[in-house]
Amino acid sequence: MDELLAKRNTPVDSVIEFNIDDDILVKRICGRLLHEPSGRTYHEEFYPPKKPMTDDLTGEPLKRRSDDNPEALRTRLDAFHKQTAPLVEYYNRKGLYTTVNADKPAPVVYDSILSAFRKAKSKDLVIFV
């Protein structure tokens, strides 16, 4: 990765990982509901339709993505963790890694991201957003 970025003259100055417990992700993702014709989305807990599994505007049925189930999601999460662990270790050793608790309210997450960028900038590194 470093060689590719060096060839492109694009240095890495900060690596941010959005960290959230897998159980919370499963709950969030498996609760998603979709009205396919319009693209409207709902969530069983956070933004439920007025009538279960029914679009509020059309009365048509809502669907779940076929891969939005706990088994498929846990398989994807396991693969993600295995693939990213070496990157986390590598960038942490270089002092470029910051983890952000993504289970906090959006303003807190945003402030954490800005803080990581400020920290990188204080090292006289260029920030690419």
Score class of each variant (00 low, 15 high):
V26P: 03
A85S: 14
T58D: 00
K82M: 07
I16A: 01
L87A: 07
A72E: 13
K82P: 00
V15M: 03
P37A: 05
V15Q: 02
I24H: 09
P37S: 05
G31Q: 05
T99Y: 06
D2Y: 08
L73P: 09
R65P: 02
Y91F: 01
N101A: 07
I16P: 00
L33E: 06
K7F: 10
V126Q: 15
P107I: 02
L25N: 11
M1Y: 10
Q83H: 08
Y90Q: 06
Y47P: 09
L33T: 04
I29M: 07
L4F: 13
V108T: 12
F18C: 10
F18W: 06
T54D: 00
R93N: 12
A116I: 03
Y91N: 01
I113P: 02
F80Y: 15
Y42P: 00
C30W: 03
V15I: 05
H35N: 03
K82R: 13
T54P: 01
K27Y: 10
L33K: 00
D56G: 06
L57Y: 11
R8N: 09
D78C: 14
D103A: 15
D67R: 03
R40D: 01
V129K: 14
E36Y: 12
S38E: 02
I29Y: 05
K123I: 04
K63I: 13
F80L: 10
I24Y: 08
P37G: 04
S122M: 15
D111N: 10
Y90P: 02
K119L: 11
H35D: 02
Y42G: 01
K27I: 11
N9K: 14
I127A: 02
P48Y: 01
I16E: 00
K82Y: 01
R32D: 05
I24T: 15
R8C: 10
D78T: 14
S112G: 06
P86S: 03
T10A: 14
R32F: 06
K27D: 14
V15N: 00
A120C: 04
S14K: 11
